[in-house]
């Protein structure tokens, strides 16, 4: 990484992040991001040969049991949704048929 500057394609990152970003902001970020990355790249100097995985970290799962009563939270959660149809959240069509 040190001898080769990464190319930061802000437009592609915005697309991946599902984030509408104006051309003006993209131009600004193209200037800011490399300086932030240059700063965080100082970690490349750290010698990690002695690093061992933190053994205290593990996934915590609860048993798949004792479900709450069906419908208990339906109304409160649906009332927060921007659009609903009955007991469902209404969304735009996900798959569209291309004309050509």
């Amino acid at each position: 990484m040190s001898d080769e500057k990464p190319i930061i394609n802000i437009r592609a990152l915005a697309e991946l992040s599902r984030l509408a970003v104006s051309d003006e902001e993209i131009a600004k970020l193209e200037k800011e991001m490399p300086s932030i990355l240059t700063f965080v790249e100082t970690i490349q100097k750290a010698d990690i040969s002695s690093a061992v995985a933190d053994t205290s970290l593990r996934n915590v799962m609860r048993a798949d049991e004792n479900p709450h009563e069906t419908g208990k939270y339906t109304e409160v959660l649906l009332s927060a949704a921007p659009a609903r149809e009955g007991d469902r959240i209404a969304v735009k069509q996900v798959i569209t048929r291309k004309n050509n």
Binding site: P6, I8, I10, L13, A14, L16, S17, L19, V21, E25, L29, E32, M33, I36, L37
Partner: peptide, 9 residues
């Protein structure tokens, strides 16, 4: 927005 893009990178 800046941090979302940085994190995605």
């Amino acid at each position: 927005r800046r941090r979302i893009l940085l994190g995605t990178f």
